[in-house]
Nucleic acid binder design. Structure first.
Lengths: 149, 149
DNA sequence: ATTTCTGTTACTGTTATGGTAACACACTTT
DNA sequence: AAAGTGTGTTACCATAACAGTAACAGAAAT
């Protein structure tokens, strides 16, 4: 399987909020950029708010804003906020045969191995912030502009 | 989402084959250790065979064997064999709004960021082989034995 | 008071998955 | 040759995660 697109959408949302510079953006506006339904955006925003990455203001003129500077929100924070599952790798849900020397020990070994892999993934995500993404987006924009000449 | 349990089951299977020391093991025997249906084991075994990690012998006395030494099969090889998806992270399947500066550039940036994370995960998986797993299984076995005293 | 916007619920269609049964085919043994 | 064994594949089912959609209560601004 793949990691759900919630992560990609969440990063998109946070990057948009960063461009707002404190101006609250509505779920409808964000949905227009992501190209999806406002309720989908709100669902993800509520996860981000619960994780303390965004704040929402209700009512007219309301919307969402970053709860802290973009440079202090890593992609690992985002990943943790929208992927509820603790472990990235699924083990077999039926217990392996305890009478088999391999069966009764393999899960513990697999937990270590997959845990190390997941930690490596999260560490890499932790090395990049929403501010970095914003900078890369601007760089892409410059590159594509100059390529048009 | 989580990565399907096929990976965990595949590592289990390969570790079992290593204990067989060249003796072909049947899908029914393997299923007994994994605690699942023989057809599920065969489905995974066919992916492993297609990836060149195992060989199968048909007919009576048949079964599967490792195609090469356990020390030369990394968990990354196994991961690649059973996870068909090229990319671990899903992007939003609808194209973001090309009129938005963020929308028209975010996917390229996300591909780089998620690609780096996936590479880190695979590198970590590549650092461990089926032989390592076998050794850890034996170590677990020793530990649990001594703990019983 | 009215309008705007969030947060949540409920429902739908789609897709991946694991479990199950069944069967053709290959191979071994007798 | 005949019987038995085991793979590889197909088809089907139930389940679960997901994204999309509509709807609505409640909070906040005007």
């Amino acid at each position: 399987m793949t990691i759900s697109s919630r992560f990609a959408v969440a990063v998109h949302i946070l990057t948009l909020l960063e461009t707002g510079r404190g101006q609250p953006l509505t779920s409808e506006y964000i949905a227009g950029s992501v190209n999806t339904n406002p309720a989908v955006v709100r669902r993800i925003l509520s996860m981000l708010a619960r994780a303390g990455l965004t704040n929402a203001r209700l009512g007219a003129g309301g919307g969402s804003v970053l709860a802290r500077p973009a440079a202090e929100i890593s992609l690992r924070d985002v990943y943790r906020a929208v992927e509820c599952e603790e472990r990235l790798f699924a083990l077999h849900h039926e217990r392996p045969n305890p009478k088999c020397p391999v069966g009764r020990n393999i899960q513990a070994v697999l937990e270590r191995a997959t845990g190390a892999a997941q930690a490596a993934l999260e560490e890499q995500l932790g090395a990049r912030t929403v501010a970095d993404v914003m900078a890369e987006v601007r760089a892409e924009e410059r590159d594509s502009r100059s390529a048009m000449v």
